[in-house]
Design a protein around this nucleic acid. Structure first.
Lengths: 189, 189
DNA sequence: GATTTTATTGAACAACTGTATAATAAAATT
DNA sequence: AATTTTATTATACAGTTGTTCAATAAAATC
């Protein structure tokens, strides 16, 4: 009794409708009425599952982030582990993940979108960063581990913000190189 | 011919109306119609200056951020400059500034608010961070200065996010201490 | 102080929002 | 296969949104 087929069909139709509308115009100009018309779903049904257009996008965005989460499980073949505690799987994967889903991250980092998308991404990276710190007990005196991981996670997202500001022109590999250089600089090369 | 008195009055009335409504209910539940009724301003006049409720809040938020910008001009009396390049005036002042305007930053960092507020804060800190890096030419090989400053600025905002998540319970002074400790750790104490 | 400029008002309109209800259709359960 | 449960639909309604327009009032300019 978990997933009624009708609900699955409805959500699928709404998802596809949103995606197809997003190819034509920006998120903020898309109305609930418009999505429902395109999806041939009653507007009342939309409200049974979501409250606003952004909630629908958020659900879709979570799907995309699953790809990020799963990519951690792979052994990191291509990048050998560096001595710095900040360069962990989260950091290594994030740029390539974003590059892969460029189109969506253009939206996720756009001005008029709710802060909640940013938080979703932050929480994902932060959780892995924290986990990595906990398994490397080399951390220091009187520092709240939550603060440290928030610091490091968001530092990487800062690079993503700058990357987005430059329309994701640089490659993910280049971003990783920049990160390594910054970490080497900051760790006192 | 710069500031028509009527415009000033209108904006002032709308600002005050928004602030007073914010004391009762959250930003997302406040309508343009409601603000205008309370301000005794015609709704059409609102649209002459803003597009949505969030734009009005943004204007108010910019006023508050002027306080942050101005606080840099004071000599930093209370904190002696540390050797690390990351601890600059921006970093030093930010926590106290946010503590001072707690109520507004609860909104600025809330989930359903547009990402643009976050960006405003980021840009403010980032500009100062960059400026500080440029005056300290000790920066390294092949690192884009924009990336480095984005990294450092947003790292600090990461701490603010965690701080907000804990309802700003810790003091600004405590946050500054945490920052110094993290920088000492990361710089290789 | 008279004139010009322009912001504000009030009204009206179509579209969208958010909510509710009864009827229907499609699943799940037995 | 019959029954029960529940998601979807169709419809309706009051309120909000975004826009336009002529009339008015308040500033700026001369």
């Amino acid at each position: 009794m978990k997933t009624d087929l009708r609900v699955l069909k409805t959500k699928e139709a709404l998802h596809e409708s949103l995606i197809s509308l997003l190819k034509e115009r920006p998120l903020e100009s898309i109305s609930i009425t418009g999505i429902c018309k395109a999806a041939k779903i009653n507007r009342g049904t939309f409200y049974q599952h979501y409250g606003k257009v952004e909630d629908l996008f958020e659900e879709y965005f979570k799907e995309i982030m699953k790809d990020l989460a799963e990519s951690y499980k792979e052994p990191y073949r291509h990048v050998e582990r560096l001595k710095t505690p900040a360069l962990n799987p989260a950091a290594i994967r994030i740029f390539h993940h974003i590059e892969k889903y460029k189109k969506f991250y253009f939206i996720v980092f756009s001005k008029n979108v709710p802060l909640s998308y940013y938080y979703l991404l932050f929480e994902e990276i932060n959780a892995l960063m924290k986990q990595d710190f906990l398994s490397h007990p080399l951390i220091g005196e009187g520092i709240a581990i939550d603060m440290l991981s928030a610091y490091q996670s968001n530092a990487i997202l800062g690079m993503v913000i700058e990357w987005h500001r430059q329309d994701f022109e640089k490659s993910a590999t280049h971003m990783n190189e920049q990160l390594v250089k910054i970490l080497n600089l900051v760790t006192g090369n």
